[in-house]
Nucleic acid binder design. Structure first.
Lengths: 218, 218
DNA sequence: AGGCTCCTCTCTCAAAAGGGGTAGACCCGA
DNA sequence: TCGGGTCTACCCCTTTTGAGAGAGGAGCCT
C-alpha cells in the first residue's frame, strides 16, 4: 500500500481522499454531496458507526477522515485513539452537533487535527478539510475561545466525573456512596469539590453547568 | 395559484414539491440529495431558519414542507402554528435530532402530519414524505409508543413548566420564588407537584427526567 | 526523600429541601 | 351553579444538603 502523499500546495492533480463517518444517513449524504462537488476532493468511503470508521480507515488510508463525535458502537474519542495508535500521522477532523461538548477537547488533545460544528456553512467545512489535509490544525472560532476559557478553569478528577454522572442522574449523596462503595461523607467531599470547581451553589446548578459544558451524558 | 393536487396513487407525472427547512447546511444538502434522486420528488426551496421557512412556504406553496424542530429565529412549533393558520391543509413533516423531544407532541397536536428522527434511514425519510404528501399521517415507530406512554403520565401545568425551567438552571426554592414573585412556600408547592408528576425523589432527579423528556432547554 | 494530587474518612452546624396535610381565590366548562 | 383544575399560601416535621476544617494513606514525579 502506498503510504503518505503529503505533498501540499500542489492541488488539482491529486484529489484529497476523504472517508466520512457519521451515523446519520442524511449528514453523510450532505457531506458527500458537498465534497464531491469540489474538484479537489473525493469521498472514498462512508461509515455509519465507530467500528466501521476504524475499518474503513484501515482499508482506504484516506488523506482525511471526517468523523462524528457521537456514534454507535465506538464514539469519536475512541476512534481517534485507535486510528492514531496505528497511524500516528492520520489526519482526523472531528465534527459535533453540540457547541461546547467537552469531549472535543479529549479528541484534540489525543491528536485530532481539527474540529467542526455540524451547523457550519459549507465553505467552513471545506476549508477545514483542506487545512487538515495539509496537516494544518483547524478549529472553528468558537472553540478556540472556549479552549482558553477552559484552561483557566480547574478540571475535575476521574472520581469527580464519576460522582458528577450520578449527580446528574439525580442520585442522593447516600445513593452515590452506595453505588461507589464509599461512605456518604466521602461522597459529600467529592460533591463539595465538584460544586467548588464548577462554581455552583447547589448540586442542581452543578448539573446544569455540567450539561452546558457537555461533561455528562443524558 | 393552483391549490391542492391531492390525487394520490397517480405518481410519476406530477412530482411532489418539497420545501426544506433546517439550519444545518449539511442536513439541507443531504436531504436535497436524497430527494432529488427520486423520480417523484423535487426540492423547490430551502430555508435556513424559521422565518425563511414561513416565507418560502407562502411563496412556493409546496406539497410538503420538511422542517427541523429547532431552528433560529422561529422554532418548528411556531412555524407549524403560523403555516397552518394560513393554510389549514398544509402538509408538514417535522424532523428532530432528539428522540423524546417533548415539542414534537406540540407540533403533532397542532396539526403537523408527520414526525421523523434525523438519524432515520433514507428509505424511512422517503416513505414519510410520500405518506405526508398524500395527507396520511406518519410517525416513526419510536414516537408512536412514546405517545402512548405520554398519555398515561400526568402533564405539567404552565406554571410548573416555568418552575421546572428555573429548577433546571439550578435555582433554589427561594430564588425561584423571588423570580416569579411568589412566596417560597408556593414555590415549594409547585416543586412538590413537579416531583410527584415526574415521579422523581429529588429536584435533581426531576431535572434529569425533564432533560430526558425534552421538557426543558439547556 | 519530599512534595504533590487524589481518594478516603471524620466531625460539627446551619440551611435547604422534601413529605404530609389544609385551604382560599380564581376561572372554565359541564 | 356546581365541580374540577390551577395557583396561591400556610402549617409541622424529617431528611438531605452544603460549608468548614481536619487528617491519614496511596501513588506519582522530581
Amino acid at each position: 500500500m502506498n503510504a503518505a502523499p503529503a505533498s501540499a500546495a500542489t492541488a488539482a492533480v491529486r484529489k484529497i481522499r476523504v472517508v466520512l463517518a457519521d451515523d446519520h444517513p442524511v449528514v453523510r449524504d450532505g457531506l458527500a454531496a458537498i465534497l464531491n462537488r469540489q474538484p479537489d476532493m473525493e469521498v472514498v468511503a462512508e461509515a455509519a458507526d465507530g467500528e466501521e470508521a476504524t475499518e474503513l480507515y484501515e482499508r482506504h488510508q484516506p488523506d482525511v477522515m471526517v468523523l462524528d463525535l457521537r456514534m454507535p458502537k465506538r464514539d469519536g474519542v475512541a476512534v481517534v485513539a485507535m486510528v492514531l495508535a496505528a497511524h500516528p500521522h492520520a489526519r482526523l477532523l472531528v465534527m459535533t452537533t453540540y457547541d461546547g461538548d467537552e469531549d472535543i477537547f479529549r479528541c484534540l488533545s489525543q491528536g485530532a487535527k481539527g474540529y467542526l460544528l455540524k451547523d457550519s456553512p459549507r465553505t467552513e467545512i471545506l476549508s477545514a478539510i483542506r487545512a487538515v489535509s495539509e496537516d494544518r490544525p483547524y478549529a472553528s472560532s468558537s472553540v478556540a475561545s472556549k479552549a482558553l476559557q477552559r484552561m483557566a478553569k480547574p478540571s475535575l478528577t476521574q472520581r469527580e466525573i464519576g460522582v458528577l454522572q450520578l449527580l446528574a442522574e439525580g442520585r442522593s449523596n447516600k445513593d452515590i456512596a452506595r453505588r461507589l462503595s464509599i461512605t456518604e461523607g466521602t461522597a459529600k467531599t467529592h460533591v463539595k469539590a465538584i460544586l467548588t470547581k464548577l462554581d455552583a451553589i447547589s448540586r442542581t446548578e452543578a448539573v446544569a453547568v455540567a450539561h452546558k459544558r457537555g461533561l455528562v451524558r443524558l
